[in-house]
Simulated assay, not measured.
Amino acid sequence: MSTLAQLKEAQKDAMRAKDKARLGTLRLALAAIKQIEVDTRQELSESDVIAVLTKMVKQRKDSISQYEAAGRQELADIEAAEIEVINDFLPQPLSQDELNTLIDAAISQSGASGMGDMGKVMGILKPQVQGRADMGALSGVIRSRLS
């Protein structure tokens, strides 16, 4: 079952269970996906849906840090609850060993020898790790391997 279908099914389940918090988060996710589909006038692929959900998690993490800095813990807790709901639909994160294996394979596949080849390595890795690893941290690991 596709992630989009899972989201729609979970929305129906949340309505039946009268779980307002979960339902609200699912509606936000579906609305974000629908907005992109309307803007681009095409149906999103599975990887595009994962990218939207990953972006939503990142936005909420940023909001949590801002709310905590402002002393608004109740708002930070709401954002954390939304992250939990969204994470139910994202693929399981890669372990560090799995990530290292993928990085090594991408470096050897691209024939990368220095920092100038970082884009090639990231281009190979991005579709494989989308939604399963933090791209900023991944970039740092690749940078240290290539330098």
Rank of each mutant, 00 (worst) to 15 (best):
A5C: 06
Q6T: 09
L7R: 02
L7K: 01
E9K: 10
Q11T: 00
A17K: 04
R22G: 14
R22Y: 01
T25G: 08
L26G: 01
R27P: 00
L28S: 12
L28E: 11
L28H: 07
A29L: 04
A29C: 08
A32D: 08
A32S: 13
D39T: 14
T40S: 12
Q42W: 06
L44W: 11
D48Y: 07
D48S: 10
A51N: 04
L53H: 01
Q59E: 15
R60M: 13
D62I: 07
G71R: 08
E74H: 09
L75M: 10
D77W: 02
E79F: 01
A81Q: 08
A81P: 01
V85K: 00
I86M: 02
I86V: 09
N87W: 05
N87Q: 15
D88I: 02
D88W: 03
L90H: 05
L94C: 04
D97H: 06
D97G: 08
D104R: 03
D104K: 08
A105F: 07
A105C: 08
A106R: 00
I107G: 04
G111Q: 05
A112C: 10
S113C: 09
D117H: 07
V121Q: 02
M122D: 10
L125R: 01
V129M: 04
Q130I: 12
Q130T: 15
G131E: 03
A133R: 03
S139W: 15
S144N: 13
